[in-house]
Design a binder for these strands. Sequence first.
DNA 1: GCTCGCGCTTGACCTAGGTCAAGGCAGCCT
DNA 2: AGGCTGCCTTGACCTAGGTCAAGCGCGAGC
Lengths: 241, 241
Amino acid sequence: MIALVPKTCLQCPVRDTALCRVLGPQQLARLNRHSYRRWYPAGQLIAGVAASEDWCATVLSGVIKLSKLLSDGRQQIVALLFPGDFLGRPYRAEFPYTAETATEVQLCCYGRAYFEGFLQDQPELKQTFLEQTLDSVDAARDWLLLLGRKTARERVAALLLMILHRTERPCPECEQDRRRELTLPLNRTEMADYLGLRLETVSRQLKQLEVAGAIVRIDSRRIAVLDAEILRDVAGPGLSL
Amino acid sequence: MIALVPKTCLQCPVRDTALCRVLGPQQLARLNRHSYRRWYPAGQLIAGVAASEDWCATVLSGVIKLSKLLSDGRQQIVALLFPGDFLGRPYRAEFPYTAETATEVQLCCYGRAYFEGFLQDQPELKQTFLEQTLDSVDAARDWLLLLGRKTARERVAALLLMILHRTERPCPECEQDRRRELTLPLNRTEMADYLGLRLETVSRQLKQLEVAGAIVRIDSRRIAVLDAEILRDVAGPGLSL
DNA sequence: GCTCGCGCTTGACCTAGGTCAAGGCAGCCT
DNA sequence: AGGCTGCCTTGACCTAGGTCAAGCGCGAGC
């Protein structure tokens, strides 16, 4: 497991999913000159709530949790960031979430001020960033439906489908519903914090999905999806995948 | 109650809160030439889920519910739009929510394609739109915490505070915690659909808040806030008001 | 003025999911 | 090897909020 730190953007693992995919070679080089890599182990705090954060980043590998927490310890994960996703809050000094790594993570970071200036210079990048932000609004609202109205069973099924979707890079359509394996980037507590449940409930619902023949739990972090169709039926619509 | 349809943007009721506040007189006139007003009574469908919508709008008056619903009738309101807010989904033909009026509503509408083009021509407008969209992400994520982790009591208190906040136009700071009156733009069912509860629960929690001395229910739609501080204590933090 | 219907409240009861507690299992350290 | 620790599962029980049902009050229509 050697951490691959790309020297040039052309070898970047998120070359064609990250924001900067729309930049030409010139601009890419320019941005790259102002970027630096960071590496974090799993379970590490990246940025605190409302901490003054003067940088932002693209996720190169790994998964990041964005969460909010209440003074009495109740916690809600409000988003997961996968490779290619953008981390940061341009135009605001305070970062309004807690960002923690769920797995080992590599970031490609830029100064916030520099990035903001760069957005001004690059209309196409700004356009892409805007469209991605609009998509984030839609994604958050999909999750509102899940938290506000779905049962525990539906939530767990939806999470598995979401992870499957965000995790499976190659060949999106082929082998559509054949057996697929996924590695959960979250432990039970984190899954619960994302789904508005308790870890015991997540555990029980995973069992139920196994009994129903939708999945097999290989080990606590690995799941084989036997029948994505069952999962989709259970999860119901929504979550514009 | 005469519907005021402003002829020029200078008399617009949302002159300094809507997106177009950043436009100069020239650009404002240009946009205005391509805009038209629409009026809807309360409880009217404006745009269906995934219906092809080729327009967008600024809310001039009234309140709009954006909601998602499941095939079995479960419904979740994912946002409320108040005067000055933007309605629409640029860069996407399908509007991913159901938009319905909660009260009587006036809109200032533009063709979607025209608006998108106008955004390209007006970097400052685009910037404002981007920042507003980033705020929408934060707002939706605040609500995720509410739906995922807060109790019924906390949710109802938070809703009242939010409505108070969005509704009280003049003099934001003066008379800070004096008695304030608010008119609910939603009925009990709608409040429940926004809070991920049932209408009976909303009703009971309002009663509890009255017993606790935080509010008085004047009639079913009007509430006097006796002590916003109690309300804030009950609601807990979050909802970056 | 009467009735109808809708929105709201209230009470009685029920249940999905939370809480608490007891193991189990795998990876680490000694 | 043995014990520890963290994570997960499972069972037994509890409760916040959902469900069901009755009734109220008010505005609209006749």
